[in-house]
């Protein structure tokens, strides 16, 4: 077989009429691009995070003393400020992804690095919130009526915090892998194919 045979076959193939050109472009949506799937996650999470911030505003019902309520709202306002910054960045990222055109290889590189940067921001944001949560948990434990602070209590707290932190880290990493990691891997593979040495 010669490649010329394929060439002539190719030239004769008119493509057929199997594919339907959409009549209304407003109705078609992208759903099978890594970029679009990531956008969907960012959007869903953004709304989820906003809802969580609002709900957390009612959490002081669980505080046992006045001091705990004050401490909670102090940390809550710091959290709102941090979340405000990060959510704004995430929103910008979401908008940027929406305007990405895949007309050159450079666009693929841009998208890849943008997603990577987003993942790092997502991590740093999660861990910043985690630290605030641990700070509040410490205040709550130490200021609860009738709590005796001795070495056993301190050891228990350290162990509890270590387990909690570990759990959050594992969950975050798994979530990142599920939402962004697999698509990043896909794009990385394609970039690798393009860059492959001779």
């Amino acid at each position: 077989m010669h490649f010329d045979d394929i060439q002539s076959l190719w030239n004769k193939d008119d493509g057929g009429d199997d594919m339907v050109v959409p009549v209304n472009l407003e109705k078609i949506k992208s759903a099978n691009q890594p970029v679009e799937r990531i956008r969907q996650y960012v959007k869903r999470e953004g709304w989820g995070q906003l809802l969580a911030i609002v709900l957390l505003g009612y959490a002081p019902h669980f505080c046992k003393t006045e001091l705990q309520v004050v401490a909670y709202y102090s940390l809550y306002s710091v959290m709102v400020a941090i979340c405000g910054y990060y959510l704004y960045r995430f929103f910008r990222f979401y908008r940027r992804l929406g305007t990405t055109a895949l007309s050159t290889r450079e666009h693929l590189d841009e998208v890849y690095y943008d997603i990577q940067l987003h993942v790092e921001m997502y991590r740093s944001w999660t861990y910043a919130i985690l630290m605030l949560a641990l700070g509040f948990a410490t205040i709550r434990l130490l200021t609860s009526p009738g709590v005796v602070i001795d070495s056993t209590m301190v050891i228990k707290m350290i162990l509890l915090f270590a387990v909690f932190m570990l759990l959050i880290v594992v969950c975050t990493e798994l979530w990142i892998r599920y939402t962004y990691g697999r698509y990043l891997k896909e794009i990385k593979k394609i970039r690798g194919e393009l860059r492959e040495e001779l």
Partner: peptide, 22 residues
């Protein structure tokens, strides 16, 4: 498969339309 081909066709048209200005 025919289904995947149709999905890709739609996706290509979508991407072309999205970047038509360029």
């Amino acid at each position: 498969t025919a289904d995947d081909q149709q999905d890709l066709f739609q996706e290509v048209v979508y991407q072309l339309w999205k970047s038509y200005d360029s």
